[in-house]
């Protein structure tokens, strides 16, 4: 399921227009992104929690050339699956995994 499919499904389940459903879904992820930008964790009971983890700079390697590449310090988001969602996911073991590849659609 993609974000736009989530928006469509929301509109179907509620009395909201697609435009309103889109505003709602975008607002949720915008608010969450802003919290993480502030370095603030997010806790959604029954779903999971997001935290921001700091990483120190290190010297990496270009795997193709073997040359040293400096990697700057960075902050990365980390998601810990909540107990309830963990069980729900594990309960789907008998079903095939669907929803396309894992590729990040934001590139390009």
């Amino acid at each position: 399921m993609t974000k736009s499919e989530l928006i469509d499904a929301m509109a179907e389940r509620t009395q909201l227009t697609k435009g309103r459903a889109e505003q709602v879904v975008n607002c949720i992820f915008d608010a969450m992104t802003e919290a993480l930008e502030r370095g603030e964790g997010i806790e959604i009971r029954g779903f999971g929690s997001f935290t921001v983890r700091p990483y120190k700079p290190y010297s990496g390697r270009n795997p193709r050339t073997g040359g040293a590449v400096p990697v700057a310090a960075k902050r990365l988001p980390f998601f810990k699956v909540g107990k309830d969602l963990k069980d729900v996911v594990n309960g789907s073991r008998h079903l095939p995994i669907s929803g396309g590849d894992d590729r990040d659609d934001d590139r390009g």
């Binding site: 989530l6 499904a9 309960g91 079903l95 396309g100 934001d106």
Partner: peptide, 17 residues
Amino acid sequence: MMKQTLGRGEKLKISGF
């Protein structure tokens, strides 16, 4: 709805997030 999707064995792709 996100939980239900994942509970069906379906991945969830939130573009930008």
